[in-house]
Amino acid sequence: MAADEVPKPTDAQRASMEKLARKFMGDFKVPGLSIAFAHRERPSFSTSYGFADAESREELTADHRFRIASVSKPLTSIALFQLMEDGKLALDDKVLGPQGRLGMEIPELKLTPRLRSLTVHHLLTHTGGGWGNQRNDPMFRNPKLDHAALIESTLRDDPLQHDPGEQYAYSNFGYCLLGRIIEKAAGVSYEGCVKDRLLKRCGIDGMEIAGNTRDERRPGEVVYHSRNGDRPYAMNVRRMDAHGGWIARPSELINILVRVDGGKVRADVLKQPSGERMFTASTANPRYACGWAVNQVPNRWHNGSLPGTASIAVITASGMCWAAMTNARTPGIGPALDRLMWDLARCVPDWKA
């Protein structure tokens, strides 16, 4: 194989991959699974299995789009670092109060010392001191409230349990705040900023914020299937924009991953110091950086989970990137989807995953 040739799976390797994928789908009651891989920043394989809609038997294709849930968080992080490179933000900027990035929208008298000390970096690393997703997640309460009303009610009724920076607690609400900070700094909507600054530079025009109901599905979007009492169309997904609201194809996520992986084939959308900082873990949790899970290998990734969908996006130290999405969610599917993608990648020895 020539040095610049992109390794592709052979027919036999594709058959092995499909066998693994079909078993996963059966084990976790998944109607549809879509996957994509890149090797050394070049697309190497993408395919789909099953159905976009199990009821109508509409076959799933690589062109179908999925809710990506919390894989949205890396997009938010990249956009923030792009704004920082333009001098519009800094990691240690305060979030609230007279000098805060959200300004005086929240009445000053309601701000506790903990809220006053909250920074952009705290929110990016889930070290804000509260608003975790383990129980009573603010982003899944009061679905009729808009962003401003939700933020005011949460700051008023949900005090921080710890000083910012001390402890890690995965916070969807923290990323909701980051979305509003992006809007303030960029002067446009969160979705508009990410599309203009990130997606356009990656040659992507098919990603957008999801609708809430089945009737509000975007063109080419799959149907999400209920499992174990999940209600995929009973959420305000549009309000989740910055922490879990995007829809995408796996191939589109690949186009983003290869533009932040530090490789030499595709120009990164961030300068090297910004990229390194984005992937640097906090002292409170050595396995989570700014919108990315990390380890010492180093691999970088994020998974996503919402009623009706599971997703994952990975940058490996070996030079691979991959993404996968499903249109149903059952217990244990997140770790299993991660293992599946590693197993699929290892079906192709030339990838050296």
Rank of each mutant, 00 (worst) to 15 (best):
E58Q: 14
P219S: 09
T10K: 04
L150E: 01
M17Q: 15
G132W: 04
A324L: 07
S251M: 14
W131H: 03
G203N: 10
H225F: 12
D4Y: 13
R201Q: 15
R239H: 06
R300G: 03
M320R: 12
S44L: 08
W322P: 04
R135G: 02
K271R: 15
P74Y: 09
H64W: 10
H126V: 00
A186H: 09
G87P: 12
G165L: 13
A248H: 12
D93I: 06
W292A: 04
F66R: 01
H64Q: 11
M320F: 04
R197W: 03
G129P: 12
F28K: 09
V120D: 06
P159W: 09
P9M: 05
N228I: 11
L60W: 05
T213F: 05
L160F: 08
L80V: 12
S251G: 11
M84T: 07
L199M: 07
D338H: 14
M341G: 03
L198K: 10
P219V: 06
A242C: 05
G203E: 10
V120R: 00
Y190W: 13
L115V: 04
S311M: 05
A148D: 02
K144Q: 08
V260K: 04
A336M: 05
K23T: 12
I35W: 03
G100E: 01
A62E: 15
D268A: 12
V95M: 07
G130E: 00
A353H: 02
P143Q: 03
H121Q: 13
T213Q: 06
E166F: 04
R65N: 02
L344S: 08
S72D: 04
A90T: 11
R300E: 05
W246N: 04
L96K: 04
G332N: 08
G203K: 10
A289I: 08
R300H: 10
D93M: 06
P74K: 11
K352R: 15
E216R: 14
V95W: 07
E41F: 09
P31T: 15
I333A: 00
D11P: 07
Q13C: 11
E216Q: 15
G211L: 09
A313E: 07
G87E: 13
K110N: 05
D268V: 12
L111M: 12
F37M: 08
P349T: 07
